[in-house]
């Protein structure tokens, strides 16, 4: 009986040791696609939010199939992107976000313009997409601490495109308050952030003006905070255009 056991054990050891001799030795993806989304007028990167609600890069691997399932990765908050784990192949690359789409279609789906880029990826490809953001949100001066420990900011919002299809009225202008710089519509402190919605065309009155927004909810807590202003129009997936995040030290 004992002998049978040992034989069985020996067999198992042999089987276990000899199976899986063929390891999956296809090299891991190691090529890099990086770059940025740039406002074609100002040359600055287009600010966005982290996570699913912001700018993302679309890869269509055309060397494998003429009708590939797209691969996506998200841009960073400052409008740059970097993916170091991509297989070398031929890709059609474009970006999607709060700007005039690179691929524009008419009302029945015909492609009118297509500014996506086709690359044969080997090692590293750096791609800078020049785009027209729906809106530009720029700081006017710095945020100011008031006597009652609220904060007042000033910004100017202008249109980033003359494209007649993207002149919808502004629907929201929001001042976001957050304790990290990842301050956006998906991450803010609702107690102090000031959200303003506009209906109809009333939102257009803020265009080109220096607008002043003050935090709500009384005194800010005694800690460092970041401020960011986001604005959007009802176009595409209604994503926000943002100012840069600005940190403020509690006085």
């Amino acid at each position: 009986m004992k002998r049978l056991f040992y034989y069985t054990a020996l067999c198992l050891v042999v089987v276990a040791g000899s199976s899986c001799s063929k390891i999956d030795n296809y090299p891991a993806p190691s090529d890099t696609i990086n770059g940025s989304t740039i406002d074609e007028v100002t040359g600055a990167t287009v600010q966005t939010e982290v996570g699913g609600g912001g700018t993302r890069v679309e890869l269509l691997e055309t060397s494998y199939s003429s009708n590939p399932v797209p691969i996506y990765f998200q841009s960073m908050q400052d409008g740059t992107f970097n993916n170091t784990k991509v297989f070398g192949a031929t890709y059609k690359v474009s970006v999607q976000g709060p700007f005039v789409p690179l691929i524009q279609t008419d009302s029945i789906g015909n492609v009118l313009t297509d500014s996506s880029k086709t690359i044969v990826l080997k090692n590293t490809a750096t791609l800078n997409f020049k785009v027209q953001p729906f809106l530009r949100v720029e700081w006017v001066g710095k945020p100011v601490f008031n006597a009652d420990s609220t904060v007042t900011v000033q910004v100017k919002i202008t249109r980033g495109t003359n494209n007649p299809n993207y002149q919808q009225p502004i629907t929201d202008v929001n001042l976001y308050v957050c304790n990290t710089k990842y301050d956006a519509n998906n991450n803010y402190d609702p107690r102090y952030s000031t959200l303003t919605s506009y209906s109809g065309t009333s939102g257009n009155s803020v265009l080109g003006q220096t607008i002043t927004i003050t935090t709500v909810g009384g005194a800010l807590p005694a800690q460092d905070v970041f401020f960011r202003v986001g604005a959007r129009i009802n176009a595409g997936l209604d994503e926000y255009n943002y100012s840069t995040p600005v940190g403020l030290t509690y006085p």
């Binding site: 279609t105 009302s107 029945i108 789906g109 009802n234």
Partner: peptide, 12 residues
């Protein structure tokens, strides 16, 4: 609705 999507054969 304002979201549209077409396939390659112009089906909406």
């Amino acid at each position: 609705n304002t979201t549209t999507l077409f396939d390659a054969n112009h089906n909406e």
